[in-house]
Computed example of a mutant assay.
Amino acid sequence: MSPSHGLGFEPDLSDPYLAKAAALREIFARDAAERDRQGGRPTEQIRLLKESGLLKLLIPREHGGHGEPWSTALRIVREFAKVDGSLGHLYGYHFGSVHAAHLLGDPDQAARLYRRSAEGNWFWGNARNSFSRTLFGRRTGEWITVNGFKPFTSGSHVADALMIAWLDEESHEWAFAAVPADRPGIIVENDWDAIGQRQTGSGRVTFADLKVHADEVLDHGFDRGRPYRTLGVLQQQSVLLNVFIGSAQGALLAARDYTVTTSRPWLHSGVERHTDDPWVQRTYGDLVLRTQAATLLADKALQAIDAAFVRGRDLTEAERGEAAVTVAAANAHAGAVALDVTSTVFEVMGARASAASYGFDRFWRNVRTHTLHNPAEYKIRNVGTWFLTGAHPQPSNFQ
Score class of each variant (00 low, 15 high):
F244I: 00
R282W: 15
H63Y: 12
V77Y: 03
L231C: 08
S132W: 14
D36N: 14
R115F: 01
F346T: 02
D209A: 14
R381N: 04
F360W: 04
V367W: 07
V327A: 09
F207T: 10
V188P: 08
R311L: 06
L13S: 07
P107E: 11
A23Q: 14
R133I: 06
G137V: 06
A208D: 13
L240A: 12
N147H: 10
R78L: 15
L231D: 02
A304T: 07
Y378F: 03
Y284K: 09
W122E: 15
D106C: 07
Q45P: 01
A298C: 11
F360Q: 05
V205P: 03
Y17K: 03
R133S: 12
A251P: 08
E10K: 12
T259S: 11
S132A: 14
F131P: 01
A22G: 02
G40A: 05
G203N: 13
D31F: 03
T385P: 10
S354K: 07
A351R: 06
T326G: 01
S130V: 08
D160P: 01
L7I: 08
Y114A: 04
F136H: 05
P151G: 13
P184A: 13
L58H: 06
P265R: 10
F131C: 03
Q303C: 12
Y284Q: 12
P151R: 14
Y284N: 13
W266K: 13
L388G: 12
G64K: 00
A255C: 09
G120P: 02
G250D: 12
G201R: 05
S130R: 09
G8Y: 14
L302S: 05
V367E: 14
A332E: 08
I76F: 01
R256D: 00
N147G: 05
P393V: 05
L167P: 14
R352P: 07
W266N: 04
G321F: 01
A32S: 13
R381H: 03
L253N: 04
R311T: 02
A32D: 09
T369N: 11
S156K: 00
A208L: 05
G350T: 02
R381D: 03
D31E: 11
L252I: 12
V243T: 09
W364I: 01
R224P: 00
A251N: 11
E189M: 13
D257R: 15
S97I: 04
S97M: 09
L57K: 00
K50Y: 06
G6F: 04
R128C: 09
T275D: 00
A255H: 13
V83Y: 03
R282T: 10
H5E: 01
R311M: 03
A100F: 06
I245R: 03
L55F: 05
H5K: 06
R41A: 12
R224A: 14
H157T: 04
G39A: 11
Y284I: 02
A175N: 15
G270L: 05
T385M: 07
E319W: 04
P3F: 13
I380A: 09
S4H: 11
P393D: 03
Y93C: 05
S354V: 13
H99D: 10
H63P: 00
T72Q: 04
S71H: 10
T43V: 07
F9Y: 08
E216D: 15
D277P: 11
S117K: 02
R37Q: 10
